[in-house]
Amino acid sequence: MNFTLKIWRQKDANSVGRFVEVSARGIRPEMSFLEMLDVVNDEVTQAGGEPVAFDHDCREGICGACSLVINGEPHGPNEKATTCQVYMRSFRDGETITVEPFRARAFPVLKDLVADRSAFDRIIQAGGFVSVNTGQAPEANAAPIGKEVAEKAFDSAACIGCGACVAACKNSSAMLFVGAKIAHLGRLPQGQPERAQRARAMVARMDAEGFGNCTNQYECQAVCPKGVTVANIAWMNRDYLAASLKKIFTG
């Protein structure tokens, strides 16, 4: 298979980027999208050019590093899959494929297709945890947790922090990511003591990072490779409201 790639090239965070056309020849349908880029990069290197930089690591859809917008879709055309799990059989031979980085003010581009998503880390640092020091834990089976609650908490915890929700959102909102963490810990008994404080701290940090605001279009849910749903945003909305009211009226 042969393709024309329209790839975003940008020298560094301070430079202006632009699209560059590269051709990919002799691609096999069972190659992954990133393997196709490997092949292209090797050819570019051998020809004396500079290969395209992109984030990737585990290549099995769990680390959350890969982050391309392929033909206008974060993580490309496959449902519930990361960029590394997109295979070339999903494209038409001869197609022109547009490849862009995740774009948001809170995710500045560092180079080519590499975006800085450390804003997510800072949101977690603000409150996305249970404050339990090593050694303080009670016996694991001391607090039973219903199977259904555990399963739902897992559904929220399945987030891989890739940022596709932000990338797909027309408003660059991070609310699916933040909602998933607030819901994950908020559902479990271990997360209760800090539940209100967590919601307030994480939302405040999210706002400070310069993400946009949710307009309930649910594009985030449509691209999430782990099927995290917008019910998590509703959970966050509820928790934040309750936490704020509680703080206002009880101090």
Partner: peptide, 19 residues
Amino acid sequence: IDQCVAQGVPFGREYGGML
């Protein structure tokens, strides 16, 4: 296991709520 459960790791559970 105790530590991880306390951190909120959603391990698989039985219907009775046990790990």
